[in-house]
Simulated assay, not measured.
Amino acid sequence: MCLFRLIGGNTVDNKSLWEKSWSKENIDNLLPYLEKYNNLKSDEIDLFQKEKIKKACDAACGFGTYTLALASNGFIVKAFDISENAAEITKEGLKRLGYDIDVKAASILQTGYADSEFDGAFAHSVLDHMTFADAKKGFAELCRIVRSGGLILVSFDEVDDDDLALEHENQEDGCIRFTGDSAKNGMILHPYDDVWVEELLSGKEILYEAVNSKDEHVFIVRN
């Protein structure tokens, strides 16, 4: 699994990890991947359109794949990532493809957006790269910035054998923290767990649930 596909952790103490990871990337190398999301069609986007979502936030945007997918499908989009490098890469990539998007550096724990600023939000592979306590805070922040009745998409990675083969420590909350000499050193990952997700999304109506081509468990809930 490529490191840039895992970027999404937003705990404050891991900011340096994501900044360092994104400092090794550049838009020239990532543009071919980004372009695949231009005019992307998916069940998730169809549901957002059906529910008349107009203004959307791409949380922990990485290099802007879902920012582009949303913008190219007619949504008004703002995006953020904890890494300033990622935010700059996203802005440059979108600019090259003809999109002028408001992208900034911010944590999902404190986005800086106004209450109910958005109709919906995408948060792909974000909350499972945080401690459970921070994941709950991050989800609460998404609920704050999305209006009542709006939609929130969250997804969670499966842990594969390659992940488990790396040196790591098991945390009390069920997360693992990578250690050792790998590029993932310091990264947090919570293995997908139905009980954990049910607790995280407690009280929300689940409108959509699926496993996508990346083996991510995707949920869309009504705020």
Rank of each mutant, 00 (worst) to 15 (best):
166 L>G: 09
125 S>R: 01
92 E>G: 01
180 G>N: 08
93 G>H: 07
156 F>E: 12
90 T>L: 09
154 V>N: 02
40 L>D: 03
15 K>G: 06
192 Y>M: 06
109 L>Q: 03
206 I>K: 05
59 A>M: 15
133 A>K: 06
89 I>L: 15
146 V>M: 07
114 A>T: 11
75 F>R: 11
82 I>S: 06
15 K>L: 07
220 I>F: 07
81 D>C: 05
190 H>F: 15
167 E>N: 14
113 Y>D: 03
223 N>Y: 08
127 L>I: 07
158 E>G: 12
108 I>L: 12
59 A>V: 12
51 E>S: 02
40 L>I: 08
126 V>F: 02
176 I>F: 04
199 E>Y: 02
52 K>F: 04
61 C>H: 11
16 S>V: 04
155 S>H: 06
95 K>P: 09
199 E>T: 05
52 K>T: 05
178 F>Y: 15
144 R>T: 10
39 N>D: 13
166 L>I: 10
111 T>G: 13
217 H>T: 00
8 G>R: 01
206 I>W: 00
13 D>S: 10
25 E>H: 09
144 R>Y: 00
221 V>S: 03
156 F>L: 11
172 E>T: 11
193 D>W: 09
19 E>H: 03
146 V>N: 02
193 D>C: 13
41 K>M: 05
205 E>S: 08
110 Q>M: 12
14 N>S: 11
29 N>E: 13
18 W>D: 09
140 A>F: 10
37 Y>Q: 02
158 E>M: 15
135 A>I: 07
108 I>E: 01
44 E>N: 07
172 E>P: 06
39 N>M: 03
200 L>G: 00
120 G>N: 05
211 V>P: 00
220 I>A: 06
202 S>D: 11
73 N>T: 07
50 K>I: 07
138 G>E: 02
119 D>C: 06
168 H>N: 11
100 D>M: 08
146 V>C: 13
155 S>Q: 07
8 G>D: 03
177 R>V: 13
143 C>I: 14
177 R>D: 07
150 G>Y: 04
148 S>V: 12
97 L>D: 08
173 D>A: 04
39 N>K: 09
106 A>G: 06
62 G>V: 01
68 L>M: 01
186 G>R: 07
133 A>S: 06
215 D>S: 13
181 D>W: 01
61 C>V: 13
22 W>Y: 14
11 T>C: 14
13 D>H: 10
222 R>L: 00
33 Y>R: 15
